[in-house]
Design a binder for these strands. Sequence first.
DNA 1: GACATTTAGTTTCATATGTAACTATTTATG
DNA 2: CATAAATAGTTACATATGAAACTAAATGTC
Lengths: 155, 155
Amino acid sequence: MPDPSRTPQLRLREFLPYRLSVLSNTISRRIAELYDREFGLTIWQWRVMAVTGDAPGISATEIGQRTAMDKVAVSRAVAGLIEVGYLERKSSEEDGRRSKLYLTPAGTSVYDEIVPMAIAEEQALEAVLTPEERVELTRLMEKLAGSASPDRPLW
Amino acid sequence: MPDPSRTPQLRLREFLPYRLSVLSNTISRRIAELYDREFGLTIWQWRVMAVTGDAPGISATEIGQRTAMDKVAVSRAVAGLIEVGYLERKSSEEDGRRSKLYLTPAGTSVYDEIVPMAIAEEQALEAVLTPEERVELTRLMEKLAGSASPDRPLW
DNA sequence: GACATTTAGTTTCATATGTAACTATTTATG
DNA sequence: CATAAATAGTTACATATGAAACTAAATGTC
């Protein structure tokens, strides 16, 4: 007969936040390695390129919102991309604080190479799931995201 | 009629590795904040305590295997925990390189406090899912983990 | 048993990251 | 319009992290 006063067991390996973290880190590390090896880009730089390619003229702040990066990370990623010539900055006419970002031709050509690779990679990852499972996973993740959103107090 | 030669679209927000990373980071940040605020522990220190509480006498290497931490991270977390008096090291009789780790009484008392809190927290997080959904999520995550395991080549 | 190899764990060093302070510009308030 | 408050983005600083070098002990090989 178990003693109910004992501290309940916690098995790290069954702990959802832990499992999520390990899975996400495993995948992220793989991807980081690929982008670094193939294009010399960090994940952050790649995210900036991804949204800039999708929305030319975007501002650093908007990039932050779309990529869940903080403004310092965006600033650094942008600086690095300008340095290697993949990104170009024009200051906004309407607002002198803001700058508009664009892929350069070199940046666009990297973008055009990297996007299919990224998509292929995601598909390779998701290939183990059926289409129904993918939909279901997305649904469950969204439920969790709602539960974990930073503005919502935990208890 | 869309031009098939154009680069296909990639929407970061729909990209599974990205979504996983954001979800995991959101949850991890919350937890890190809680453990830091309540106990002055980092996530790594907490993971070390969790497995040591579960398997007293465990070695640093085994901790690394159970927690998906590298040996440097384990070493640092252990050093910090010894410093604050939550962990105790005894060197192994059989193998002089290895050391066995134990929670001290102070460490045990923190452990006994933190475990129910961690469990409650996980339950709060999972409360948005039905039991069936939890099982399903675990199954899907395991499929992905198999697909993403570091030893498996991507293409 | 001497020497090479492996393993456990720590330390060092270089880089990444987050927080806070800062500059520049715009917007709001009296 | 002068000044305060807010916003965009950068810089500086302190800390975290990972890779590689290192120490010490154990194991394998001749």
